[in-house]
Design a protein around this nucleic acid. Structure first.
Length: 280
DNA sequence: CGTTCATCCTGAGAGC
DNA sequence: TGCTCTCAGGATGAAC
């Protein structure tokens, strides 16, 4: 569910709530949520109990808390399709999809809530400055080292379709189904257009569109269709009202008035304007 | 090597 | 009402 703008919204909330806080208790109620952790809850507890959070970082859709100011020890999290963090009171009753509780010093609580359990958390090392579980993930467009031209060149040498490449987190990270469709609509590119031989200028235009739409979405606090996506205070973002393509099947294109089409693609949906986004 | 697809989950809503 | 089917913001491993 959450893509880069939603994860960034969560990161900002966590930064406010967690910075300088000590972790004094960890309670795991879902083995699946810590499926990537060696030794399960024992490993998680050993990794984070007693630590203080120094900062919260993000690459693409992956988040990590730096612990004790040392970059080598972190708690990494991926929200999957339905995960979120909620800040609250330790005395509150557990909610149905609450998977893990971190009790913090100074009387607060942070919960990982995840209906579909595709999300996970993992205490691990980050010797390189990036957690081991994130090392295979490409830079996202907001990283200072992100280079649009080199990614555009890489796009042009792949044998696939443009939307598949945008969703491949080892090319450029942070883009999911919503923002891929929005970026393609802005750049007037058909999702199934071949990547092979794509002009660098076209790739740059597409990546610029992706960065632009995600930047605007961050300002709006992300896209929320339902209560599954909320920030750490339980609030929704309002970018859904600014979407031009995603979820707008049958509604007029905001540029040309033609009805937005919905197509099956990669086992999910693509929304596009058949007039603005030509395949040829 | 690069590319594609089924699969992991839970719940909401549509249609019968 | 209750059943079945489809759909949902993602990533991964296994197969080609």
């Amino acid at each position: 569910m959450p893509e880069l703008p939603e994860v960034e919204t969560v990161r900002r909330g966590l930064q406010q709530v967690l910075c300088g806080r000590g972790i004094i208790e960890v309670d795991v109620r879902s083995a699946r949520t810590i499926r990537r952790q060696a030794e399960g809850s024992t490993g998680l507890v050993a990794g984070v109990l007693g630590a203080t959070v120094a900062g919260v970082h993000r690459r693409g859709k992956y988040l990590w808390w730096a612990l004790d100011g040392t970059p080598s020890r972190v708690l990494t999290a991926h929200l999957g399709m339905s995960g979120h963090f909620r800040h609250g009171d330790p005395a509150d009753a557990w909610t149905p999809h609450e998977r893990i509780r971190f009790t913090l010093d100074k009387g607060s609580r942070l919960s990982f809530v995840d209906q579909r359990t595709f999300g996970w958390v993992l205490a691990e090392d980050a010797e390189s400055g990036v957690p081991d579980s994130v090392s295979h993930v490409a830079l996202d467009p907001f990283d200072a080292a992100f280079d649009r031209r080199s990614v555009a060149r890489a796009l042009g040498s792949r044998r696939t379709e443009v939307k598949r490449a945008l969703l491949d987190q080892t090319m450029v990270s942070g883009i999911g189904n919503i923002y891929a469709d929005e970026a393609l609509w802005r750049a007037r590119i058909h999702p199934r257009r071949a990547t092979l031989g794509l002009a660098v200028s076209t790739g740059v235009r597409l990546l610029s569109s992706a960065e632009e739409v995600m930047r605007e979405a961050i300002v709006a606090g992300g896209t929320s269709f339902d209560p599954l996506y909320v920030n750490v205070n339980g609030e929704s973002g309002w970018f859904a009202r600014d979407l031009a393509a995603y979820g707008r099947a049958g509604e007029p294109c905001r540029r040309c008035g033609r009805r937005i089409a919905r197509e099956r693609f990669m086992g999910r949906s693509s929304y596009l304007c058949p007039r603005c986004q030509r395949l040829a």
